[in-house]
Design a binder for these strands. Structure first.
Lengths: 127, 127
DNA sequence: CGGGATCCTTAAGGATACTG
DNA sequence: CAGTATCCTTAAGGATCCCG
C-alpha cells in the first residue's frame, strides 16, 4: 500500500503521494478513534477497549503499536500489580489532530451536499 | 466499514466518528491521486490512466464513480467520435483539497520525527 | 476512447483461547 | 490488566477480456 513516492512521477502526482501516505497512516477502521480518545488525557488499554464499541483486542493492540511506531502515541508501563499501561498523544499527534478537526469542519459544512449528491446519483442509476 | 455514528457513543467517540467517515471517503489507494489530478483542470479518462502509475482500469473507474457519487467530481460526456469524457473537481472538492494540503504541511514538518520514531521503535524491538 | 463484467489474489479485520 | 497467538472471514484491489 505504501507508494514509495520514488519512481519518477508527474509533478502533480508527486504532490499527491505524500498526502496519500498520511491518509494511509490514519486510515483503517480504528486509528482516528484511538487518537481522539487519547488526545485530552492519557488512556489505559481496557479503557480504550470499553470506549471504542466494536473494536477487537487484536486490532486495538495492532493499531496502538502502529501509532506508537509513528511517534503519535507514547506507551508508559507502570510495573505495578496488576499492571497499568497508559497511552498518551504526542505533540505531533496533537498538531495532526488540529488538521483532522479542520476536515471535520469541512464534513459538517458539506454533509447536506454529499447526501444530496448520493441521492441524485443513485436515483439517476435506477432510472 | 461505514460506522453509522448511530449506536450510542461516548461523547469523545461521537467526535471521532464523522472524522473516520471523511478519512474513509478519501482513503483507498487512489482517491487522492485522482482528486489532485483533477483539481486544477478537467482531465480525461486516459489522461488519468497515464498520469497515475500503477492504477488498473478497474480501480480507476470504480474510484471515479465513488468520487462522482459523493459530489467531488463531475463527469461530462462529449458525444463525439471517438468519445471524450472529462472529469472535473467540484467546489466542494476544492475546499476539501485545501484541508488536504494542510495535512501535507503537517507531514512535511514532521517527516523527520516520524522517520526517527520508526527507526527508534524498530531498533528497540530488535534488541 | 471509455469503460463494464468476470475471476483471482492479497491484506484488513474479527473471534477467541491462552499468558505473565 | 494488558496483552500475544491462531484461525477464519470479508473486502480491496489486480489482471484480463470484451464491447459500443
Amino acid at each position: 500500500m505504501s507508494d514509495d513516492c520514488e519512481t519518477p512521477l508527474s509533478d502533480v502526482q508527486a504532490e499527491a503521494c505524500p498526502i496519500v501516505q498520511i491518509i494511509d497512516r490514519v486510515a483503517g477502521k480504528w486509528s482516528v478513534s484511538i487518537l481522539v480518545a487519547a488526545i485530552r488525557e492519557p488512556v489505559r488499554y481496557t479503557e480504550l477497549e470499553r470506549s471504542i464499541p466494536g473494536i477487537s483486542r487484536r486490532m486495538l493492540t495492532l493499531t496502538l503499536r502502529n501509532l506508537e511506531r509513528d511517534g503519535l502515541l507514547t506507551r508508559t508501563v507502570y510495573p505495578t500489580v496488576p499492571p497499568k499501561v497508559e497511552y498518551r498523544a504526542t505533540e505531533s499527534a496533537r498538531e495532526l489532530y488540529g488538521h483532522l478537526t479542520g476536515l471535520l469542519a469541512w464534513a459538517e459544512r458539506h454533509q447536506p451536499d454529499i447526501i444530496e449528491a448520493r441521492r441524485a446519483y443513485d436515483q439517476a442509476l435506477a432510472a
